[in-house]
Design a protein around this nucleic acid. Sequence first.
DNA 1: ACTAATTTTTAGGTTTGCCTAAAAATAGAT
DNA 2: ATCTATTTTTAGGCAAACCTAAAAATTAGT
Lengths: 217, 217
Amino acid sequence: MHSISEENYIKAIYHLQEGQALVSTNDIAGRMKTKASSVTDMLKKLADKKLAEYIPYKGARLTENGVLCANQIIRKHRLWEVFLVEKLDFSWDEVHDVAEQLEHIQSPKLTNELDKFLNYPKHDPHGDPIPDSKGNYEKYTQVALGDLEIGQQGVLTGVVNTSRDFLRYLDKHEIKLGAQIQLLEIEEFDGSCRVKSDGRELYISKQTVESLFVKIK
Amino acid sequence: MHSISEENYIKAIYHLQEGQALVSTNDIAGRMKTKASSVTDMLKKLADKKLAEYIPYKGARLTENGVLCANQIIRKHRLWEVFLVEKLDFSWDEVHDVAEQLEHIQSPKLTNELDKFLNYPKHDPHGDPIPDSKGNYEKYTQVALGDLEIGQQGVLTGVVNTSRDFLRYLDKHEIKLGAQIQLLEIEEFDGSCRVKSDGRELYISKQTVESLFVKIK
DNA sequence: ACTAATTTTTAGGTTTGCCTAAAAATAGAT
DNA sequence: ATCTATTTTTAGGCAAACCTAAAAATTAGT
Ligand SMILES: [Mn+2]
Ligand SMILES: [Mn+2]
Ligand SMILES: [Mn+2]
Ligand SMILES: [Mn+2]
């Protein structure tokens, strides 16, 4: 199988290649917090294993096989996050580092039994979709909260930023995934917004507005 | 912290040093399925880290710190085994390889929440005791089933041998941990036994008798 | 006690994944 | 088009964990 290091690179490339035709060595280095030279080493290895296409000096992109592999890792990561929050009383800002380890456990039976035990959840605690055992997942149209029209409403489905501080901030203000949310007003001056969520009216900063995704029907 | 490799050596030494004053390089190599030279390398490293005392040409033994560390790994291993059997429908002969990976996940919170979620189990699916968060565990006197007196009875508490074949054999003959078991007769010829378990009388081989532990009051 | 067999260590080598520093390629600015 | 800044690769090295083969120490047999 693949080493933990290989898996972490695969996941990083997967997340970076959305939209992009090719992902640059430097971008991967940034996300992995390693040096560009280490990335080059790994890209050659992933290309050898037919998990990525690699064009020297141009960049890389996962092959079909690489994408499949990425989906399995992401599936495990997100299932474990659900487990930690739903069964073990972790809060959603505590799960990431542990899931980062658990995603590398190799046992298809474990993954599938966990999925069953959790009742085949479709989304993780941060609102991100969970691929099924074949790698398929629901892609609904998400829009940044700030891109709604004034008065338009949607369901809060995800967060862009999963920093501890940001998740704690949301908890403190009782902003929860799944809540109905309506954009009432955008302040020209600083980009902050007035929104209505579950009946309550609240003011949130420009930064927060840009970090929240909503699903619109 | 400690690498996965270090942890596996610590666990191996822990299991081997029961009774023994010092564990030999060769014994460790045997259990770890590595070469003696690799063991020597690791023993030096564990000694540097004050996890083991190592006397060249004589052998090694865990320090107090090493034992503490072993207990934590074993605690995690056995808690995950309980989880797999009780919550995810694994059978007791399928859990070992996965637990071998899960035991290395680093998160004290995860371990303790898992313990709580499982209702603080005292024994794993093979009857082995689970250390608590301080490393203490219940040591009751277990006796090999074959060492009972004729007519004496006890509660089946554990298995020595956790090979797949053996565990499947026990399942097939419905020999279950926790069952009351009485030794009725030992056959001089081949050492096989007649026992009564949960009312049923059955014949079991010498090898099986030696692989089963019972608790006597 | 001496020799032979066994055990253990040392020496030297490999692979994986990382690093720094230098060289080469590419992209950007005038 | 040329020069400059940035990006990327190469070269060479290091640590962890493994290996084989040879040397050294220990143990066992007589
Ligand atoms: Mn990871
Ligand atoms: Mn998540
Ligand atoms: Mn292990
Ligand atoms: Mn067990």
